[in-house]
Design a protein around this nucleic acid. Structure first.
Length: 225
DNA sequence: CACCAGGCAAGTA
DNA sequence: TACTTGCATGGT
C-alpha cells in the first residue's frame, strides 16, 4: 500500500488494512455487472441483507428491467413486486424511481454522463435525491463510478468503535475524513478497504466480546483518538 | 420466539 | 440539534 500522512492513526488504519487484506485477499468489489446495476444494488441494500438484494436484482434482470430506460418505464406495482425479497419494497420502489427521474432529468438517463460531473458537486446532488443518503451516494460514486471517495457504513463504525479508534458519536463526515486524510486518495484502495471492513463485519465483530478468530484480534488499541 | 441485515427520511421536542 | 419511528423480507 502507498505511504500515509505519517500520523499514528494513519499508520494504524494502514495496519488494519494490511491485516485484513492478508486474511481476506483481494475482494474486487462490488458484485454487479454494470454501473447501473451497482447503483440499484446500493439503494436496495439499505438496512438489508445482501442475499435478499441479490434475489431482487435477479428478478429485475430476468424481466429485462436492469437499465435506466426500462426501469423508468416499468410501473411502480411491477417494480415493487419484483424487488419484494429485498424488503421495504414500496419505499425502495419510490427511491429507485426518484434516482431514475434525477438521472433522466440531469444526465439524459446516462450513468456515464453523470460520472463526468465534478465529484463533490455530484455527491451533493445525489444527496438531494429522496432516498439517497451519504452511504448510498458514496457507494454509487465509489463502486459504480470508480471515484476516490471512502464509504462509511454500519460495519465500519462498529469495528472502529470496538477497537477504540472513534467515539460513538462521530458523524459520517468525520469518519470519512479520517480515512481520506490518513490514506492516499485512491478509488482502488478505498474500494478494497471498505470491502474488507464489510467482510470483517459480516463474519466477525458481531457481538461485544470480540471473537477469538477475528483477524483484528491481535491489533493493539494504543491510545488512539 | 427475538434479533439482525452493506439506511434513510419524516416527525417530535 | 438530537432522538424516535416506519419501512419488510428472509436468515439465524
Amino acid at each position: 500500500m502507498g505511504s500515509d500522512k505519517s500520523t499514528a492513526i494513519g499508520e494504524y488504519l494502514q495496519k488494519i488494512y494490511d491485516v485484513l487484506e492478508g486474511h481476506f485477499g483481494n475482494l474486487d468489489w462490488w458484485p454487479g455487472e454494470t454501473p447501473f446495476e451497482i447503483a440499484v444494488g446500493a439503494i436496495l441494500t439499505q438496512n438489508t441483507n445482501w442475499k435478499n438484494v441479490e434475489r431482487a436484482i435477479d428478478q429485475l434482470k430476468s424481466h429485462g428491467l436492469l437499465s435506466p430506460e426500462a426501469l423508468l418505464k416499468a410501473s411502480d406495482d411491477i417494480v415493487a413486486a419484483l424487488i419484494k425479497p429485498s424488503g421495504y419494497y414500496n419505499l425502495k420502489t419510490k427511491r429507485l424511481k426518484a434516482f431514475l427521474y434525477f438521472l433522466d432529468r440531469e444526465y439524459a438517463g446516462s450513468m456515464d454522463r453523470m460520472f463526468e460531473a465534478d465529484l463533490w458537486t455530484l455527491r451533493k446532488k445525489l444527496l438531494s435525491v429522496n432516498g439517497i443518503g451519504e452511504e448510498t451516494a458514496d457507494s454509487i460514486l465509489l463502486y459504480a463510478g470508480n471515484k476516490p471517495i471512502f464509504v462509511v457504513d454500519g460495519y465500519t463504525r462498529r469495528i472502529l468503535e470496538r477497537h477504540g479508534i472513534i467515539g460513538n458519536n462521530w458523524s459520517y463526515d468525520r469518519i470519512q475524513k479520517l480515512y481520506m486524510v490518513c490514506l492516499p486518495e485512491s478509488a482502488i484502495l478505498y474500494n478494497q478497504y471498505h470491502a474488507l471492513l464489510v467482510s470483517t463485519g459480516k463474519h466477525y465483530c458481531r457481538k461485544p466480546p470480540l471473537c477469538k478468530d477475528c483477524p483484528l484480534q491481535s491489533m493493539k488499541h494504543n491510545e488512539i483518538i
